[in-house]
Design a binder for these strands. Structure first.
Length: 1135
RNA sequence: AGUCCCGUAGCUCAGCUGGUUAGAGCGCUACACUGAUAAUGUAGAGGUCCGCAGUUCAAGUCUGCGCGGGACUACCA
């Protein structure tokens, strides 16, 4: 007989993944899953481009599973789901990698290596790991079109980015500014706020901190403010704290809070022991002065010890201190302009008295707040900018992070020891040296080590500097409201990320700093005249080419970089003649309206702009694909990690909002982190990172995906535990595999063949079939709803529950006999059809999450079907709607009852140690309500066969036999009686059998509680039975079961027969017989065995497929078996 | 400091619009079953549902205040 349904020896999920993957590749299943939906409504997904410059981790499997699930599901629903892969190719990580490889630094670029060669190296490096990524993509079963990915360094992509910038320019949303920015001297670039806020960039560091003493200048204002508190020869200092002593030479102001209370304290310097008076915030006094020493006579101080006396000699508020002046602390240099306005006390809102002294050291060149308050003061406080050799104003620290020559003995030294190459850092950092110097000069009030968190460059790992840089900005602030409004149209999963995290972020959004002073990226398409009075921006190669033509005519340029480019020709070959990177465009000198040369603004744009531009740039919009773009914008769905909230999610949203006044995506899933099993972050350093390839190879992609999706909601962090995958493998996939194997085994024996057109009528099938089909349709509804609501966890868990509990451990278990017995029959046919349908539907429903196994299952089920009635893959099938007409909730109630009754009988058997193989005569179930009676009648056969009992009697209400119990229905009574509820419950609890009888007879019961009349209705309570005197009884959830455990001879013999059958079956199996083999059986005689066999001969022989059964006295061969009190031997052979 | 998430059995997690014995799986113990067997059934042990206060007849569930864990944002002088 031909086997229609493949049978397997064991489940090998990893093998299945590989085998199915090959099948997909050989048959172009992915391509067909898209082409077969041509003309159907499209569902648009945008792939967030990974950078192929680094290796993928296990968290990528998580993120990509989520993406894949919804794309596959929508395909099943009939949508056409195009998904183009993409690569993020620009940016600092690539550059730094290349520098390291070539052994160069940023300074060498353009000198020892040409920009062109450097960019070429970057281009090569960036795609280095594409193979690894593609490999993972395939092995994990992520379907995305990798043959034609968008690549951000391609001319077409870059041209669209230029076009977008031009749109912003035309809307007057771009401007050049000068701001204090996070700057990484080692990387040689400013960092965007997203970069500074990358997870892990803030780190605890120990710095030398100084409370410096700024000597007050004794002028008119000074006398006016302090009056009698100060004497002519007093030394008075303002105390200000800094964690960055290297900024002290750049100090140009002190900032106080107007309303903060300040005091002047008369005391001694702890290092020089000189007498002095210091000013600081009043409520920080306790932090620096010991209470015991307060108001001790100054004259008693010995000038050495630590018990320094102190006395408050003046009190006031910040406003009193404004415009006081002080001597420059470290006079290395003066601001090149308006130096007379420096070294004053000014006010600022941000001053607090939480730490420090309540007076803030202000260095406008190295602090964003500092620059702001300095600018706002009247007159403005100048920043410490000095003139370099070219007469250009520069700060006292250069772009490498070194002090300039203006800094005397410190000139040329790095301001932080971390910036030195390994082993070259001096023992004392400049911070420490400055501290020593200040101590010696009586300008340090206190020096100490301090641990605080400080941002680090995410790539170089070195601390960042805040540094004044020229920059181009996108004016986001202006359209903040609109962006917030658009965000409300987006369906966020989870909601809180959108409303809370992302929403708050938008509301506080700052202008987007686009500038990056690097080489490998998309150049700003802005050309300026020397003095910056005229600027031009280009939104296409064509425009730029025209401008070049003009420049050449004017003699500003010799050669034409786009000589052979043909405007309007969209061929790849044409675009291959263009390169828009710095090595080319920096050579372009254009002509201003006055004939002056114009050069390009030297910065590149933030790479985040590249990725945020992908909806447009992947299609080379608007130069090509206009119609296609219309149908694919905005995205229906995107997904990335929650860490992208301020990354890709933000840039997509901002560009869409500012340029198109639209959302870029309608639904977004932001998934949480993948942590190790102890809840710690995975990192290569700690060695707790799981390798995605190893994991997939070992377990197969499906269990990994299934585990990740079902273990926790995607947006909760996942505690990734390999044992959890093992559990999924055993419990879910193992069970489903067993169910299929069971089906295949018997379907092949019986020659069952699925035929969609010749089905038995579902309505005619047995209760249990209709039940499981009803459950199946409920499952289908649940799963489809869950997927449509972007709740994959719910969908997965529902399937798991169905397969394990309902299909395998209830349906198949109860129906086993239907498959075993005898020849093919209608009932068998029905059982096969039912089980087939369940497996088939499950294969479809699970395919988004477990694409390989689902397809394997589907193909096993369908390979024998005639052409035209099957698809090549489950992923090409159409799911269709759930068949609501098959759902019958009452069936479900009945089945629940059956399960409960069975479990109760098992429990009773267990209590009396009567094994299930021993048949029992009778069980009784009391049922008071007619519905319950009906319910039990409908499932009694099921229960009886499950628990091996011969009859079930339903005890209708026979007073005296049953002991009843009554329980108030809180939901009904609560609202009616409110506070009396407790008393009612107490009274009802005390009802005896007579009270219950009375309530049941009359339908109501009168109670007087706390003087209040209570009329208790029968509907307000639940009456149940609790006991049947004289029987073995159990009660659970209001259902009672009684079991007759007396064993007649007949029952005993039947039990023995069953034991024997069991032993024979084991022997059959051990002898390696097929389940269909027929046997000749010989059994040695034993006490009590013969009658048992003769009474049950028919049963024994059919069960074991025995042709001849012989009882002998002396069986020499054969297996010894013993059970109950019987010892015998059995022997069988195949006939 | 602010915003958001989380806190239920040893572990991983359910618990809908408040309703009176708080659930599942894994793990553990014991017993059974075993022609699906890398399964399965039954029973047992294991919970002040983070704490406190409030609203309510009734709170794991709603509100407030704390505590603990996490993510993010700002600042970190």
């Amino acid at each position: 007989m031909a086997r229609k349904y493949p049978e397997y020896k064991q489940l090998n999920l990893s093998g299945i993944s590989q085998e199915i993957l090959k099948y997909w590749q050989d048959n172009n299943i992915f391509e067909e899953s898209i082409s077969s939906r041509e003309g159907k409504p499209s569902f648009t997904f945008y792939e967030g481009p990974p950078s192929a410059n680094g290796l993928p981790g296990i968290h990528h499997v998580m993120a990509r599973s989520i993406k894949d699930i919804f794309c596959r599901f929508k395909t099943l629903e009939g949508y056409q789901v195009k998904r183009k892969a993409g690569w993020d190719t620009h940016g600092l990580p690539v550059e730094l990698g290349v520098e390291k490889e070539l052994g160069i630094t940023k300074e060498d670029i353009g000198k020892s290596i040409s920009v062109e060669a450097y960019n070429e190296a970057c281009k090569k490096a960036v795609m280095r790991y594409t193979d690894v990524w593609n490999d993972l993509t395939e092995k994990m079963g992520y379907w995305v079109d990798m043959d034609d990915p968008y690549i951000t360094y391609k001319p077409k992509y870059m041209e669209t980015v230029w076009w977008l910038l031009k749109q912003l320019w035309d809307k007057d949303l771009m401007y050049k500014g000068y701001t204090i920015q996070p700057y990484s001297p080692k990387a040689g670039t400013g960092l965007s706020s997203h970069e500074v806020n990358m997870p892990g960039s803030y780190r605890d560091v120990t710095d030398t901190t100084i409370i410096a003493q700024f000597p007050a200048i004794k002028n008119e204002a000074y006398s006016k403010t302090f009056g009698d508190a100060v004497k002519a020869d007093d030394k008075v200092y303002f105390l200000a704290w800094t964690t960055t002593p290297w900024t002290l030479p750049s100090n140009t102001a002190l900032t106080v809070g107007k309303k903060i209370e300040y005091v002047m304290v008369e005391t001694f310097n702890m290092y020089t022991h000189e007498a002095q008076k210091v000013v600081l915030a009043k409520n920080l006094v306790g932090k620096y002065f010991k209470a015991e020493q307060k108001d001790q006579p100054q004259a008693d101080y010995d000038g050495k010890g630590k018990n320094i006396p102190w006395t408050i000699v003046w009190e006031g508020v910040g406003a009193d201190l404004l415009e006081l002046r002080y001597e420059q602390l470290l006079p290395y240099a003066l601001p090149y302009e308006n130096a007379e306005n420096a070294f004053r006390v000014i006010s600022g809102d941000f001053v607090t008295t939480e730490d420090g002294t309540g007076i803030v050291h202000t260095a406008p060149t190295f602090g964003a707040d500092d620059a702001k308050v300095a600018k706002e003061a009247t007159p403005p406080v100048p920043p410490m900018l000095v003139l370099d050799d070219n007469e250009n104003p520069v700060p006292l620290v250069d772009l490498q992070g070194k002090f300039t020559k203006h800094m005397g003995e410190y000139g040329g030294r790095y301001v932080k020891n971390e910036y030195y190459a390994d082993g070259e850092a001096p023992e004392k950092s400049v911070d420490v040296e400055i501290a020593i110097k200040l101590k010696e000069e009586n300008k340090a009030f206190k020096v100490e080590k301090y641990v605080h968190s400080y941002p680090h460059c995410w790539r170089t790992d070195k601390p960042i500097l805040y540094y004044p840089l020229d920059s181009w900005f996108i004016n986001v602030t202006q359209h903040k409201e609109r962006l917030v409004g658009l965000n409300k149209e987006i369906n966020w999963k989870p909601k809180s990320t959108g409303e809370g995290r992302f929403g708050n972020w938008l509301e506080n959004a700052n202008d987007w700093n686009l500038s990056r002073s690097r080489y490998w990226g998309i150049p700003l398409p802005i050309w300026s005249t020397e003095d910056g009075t005229e600027r031009k921006t280009f939104g296409s190669v064509e425009e730029l080419k025209a401008a070049c033509d003009e420049a050449i005519k004017a003699g500003l340029m010799d050669s034409h970089p786009f000589e052979s480019f043909e405007p309007g020709n969209m061929d790849e070959a044409n675009y291959d003649t263009v390169d828009l990177h710095r090595n080319v465009v920096d050579q372009i000198v254009l002509k201003s309206s006055a004939g002056e040369p114009m050069r390009r603004e030297s910065d590149l744009i933030d790479v985040w702009f590249d990725s945020g531009a992908m909806p447009y740039a992947q299609l080379h919009y608007p130069f090509e694909n206009k119609e296609k773009f219309e149908t694919q914008y905005p995205a229906d769905f995107i997904a990335e990690g929650v860490d992208q909230t301020r990354g890709w999610f933000y840039t997509l949203h901002t560009i869409a909002g500012l340029v198109f006044d639209s959302v870029a995506y309608k639904n977004v899933v932001s998934n949480g982190l993948v942590l190790d099993k102890n809840g710690h972050k995975m990192s290569k350093r700690l060695g707790n990172a799981a390798d995605p390839f190893e994991t997939i190879l070992k377990y197969g992609a499906d269990p990994v995906r299934w585990y990740m999706i079902t273990n926790a909601q995607p947006w909760d962090n996942l505690k990734f535990d390999l044992e959890g995958i093992g559990e999924v493998q055993r419990k879910f996939f193992g069970t489903l595999y067993n169910t299929y194997s069971f089906f295949a085994l018997y379907a092949n024996i019986d020659g069952f063949e699925w035929n969609a057109d010749q089905q038995t009528n579902v309505a005619d099938r047995p209760e249990i079939d209709r039940w499981v089909l009803s459950r199946l349709q409920v499952l289908k509804q649940n799963v489809m709803n869950s997927f449509n609501e972007y709740e994959p966890t719910r969908a997965g868990r529902a399937m798991q529950q169905f397969v394990d509990e309902e299909l395998s451990n209830w349906y198949v278990r109860l129906c086993r006999r239907r498959f075993w017995k005898g020849e093919m029959s209608t009932d068998k046919q029905m059982a096969y059809e039912t089980l087939y349908e369940c497996l088939f539907t499950v294969s479809q429903l699970m395919s988004p999450i477990a694409p390989f196994f689902a397809d394997w299952l589907y193909q096993n089920l369908s390979s024998h079907l005639p052409e035209g009635s099957k698809e090549k893959s489950v992923h090409l099938t159409y799911l269709g709607e759930a068949r609501a007409e098959l759902i019958d909730e009452r069936l479900n109630d009945r089945m629940k009852m059956a399960q409960q009754l069975s479990s109760m009988v098992f429990s009773l058997r267990k209590r009396e140690s009567i094994k299930v193989r021993q048949p029992l005569q009778k069980m009784m179930v009391p049922a008071l309500k007619p519905e319950t009676v009906e319910l039990i009648e409908s499932i009694q056969d099921l229960v009886l066969s499950e628990v091996n009992v011969k009859e079930l009697e339903i005890l209708k209400d026979v007073s005296g036999v049953l002991v009843k119990k009554v329980k108030p229905d809180f939901k009904k009574l609560g609202p009616k009686y409110g506070k009396l509820m407790k008393q009612i419950a107490g009274a009802v609890g005390k009802f005896d059998q007579n009270d219950i009888a009375k309530l049941e007879e009359q339908g109501h019961y009168h109670l007087t509680l706390e003087g209040q009349e209570v009329e208790l209705l029968i509907e307000d309570v639940e009456v149940s039975t609790e006991d049947i005197p004289g029987w073995l009884v159990m009660t659970e959830n209001g259902i009672t079961v009684a079991l007759d455990i007396t064993l007649s001879e007949e029952l005993k013999n039947e039990g023995i027969a069953r034991e024997l059958v069991n032993r024979i079956q084991n022997l059959r199996k051990d002898s390696g017989l097929e389940v269909t083999d027929r046997i000749a059986l010989r059994v040695q005689k034993a006490d009590g065995l013969e009658t048992a066999i003769s009474e049950n001969k028919g049963y024994i022989t059919t069960e074991t497929l025995t042709e001849t059964l012989e009882m002998t006295d002396n069986l020499t061969e054969g297996l010894e078996v013993s059970f109950d009190e019987i010892n015998t031997k059995i022997h069988l052979e195949k006939v």
